[in-house]
């Protein structure tokens, strides 16, 4: 009986460890601690800023694809849905799992009114989970909104 128990435990442990090893490898392929957010967190918006001053929505001119220079519109509104014009928007981003930023310096090149801004020079140098951050300084104050993008 004793040997049986030992064997049983061994079997379960082996099975368990192989399984965790697999899922571990899949969760963090590149191995920095950052965890990919749930699928529901991946959205082009509308997305609220950290302190709730703004709601932003991204509208890429083409589907987001790796290794291509792209243009993305962002629509900035207040919580009541009014477009925010004359805001300063600083664009930043990177891959939390890899610890690198964007390969280019994208920026707002045009303000189209109704809270719509055009961001040019966006490029993702690989597929995967990217953070895309907008630091907004506008009539409602200073706030940041972070998008999780699946490229």
């Amino acid at each position: 009986m004793k040997t049986l128990h030992t064997l049983m435990i061994l079997a379960v442990l082996t099975a368990a460890s192989t399984l965790t090893a697999c899922s571990h490898a899949m969760m963090m392929i590149h191995g920095t601690g950052a965890r990919r957010p749930a699928a529901s967190e991946f959205t082009l918006g509308p997305r609220a800023s950290v302190e709730g001053r703004y709601v932003a929505t991204l509208e890429p001119s083409q589907p987001l694809r790796p290794r291509q220079m792209q243009t993305v519109r962002v629509i900035v509104r207040d919580v009541d849905g009014r477009g925010i014009d004359d805001a300063q928007i600083v664009v930043d981003g990177g891959m939390p799992q890899h610890g690198h930023g964007l390969p280019t310096r994208p920026r707002v090149t045009r303000s189209l009114g109704d809270g719509i801004y055009e961001i040019e020079g966006v490029r993702f140098n690989m597929g995967g989970w990217w953070e895309f951050r907008l630091a907004i300084t506008g009539s409602r104050g200073v706030d940041t909104v972070t998008f999780n993008l699946a490229v």
Partner: peptide, 13 residues
Amino acid sequence: ATALVVLILWATL
């Protein structure tokens, strides 16, 4: 039981 255990181990690997 031993046979079963061996089977589980083998199947996992």
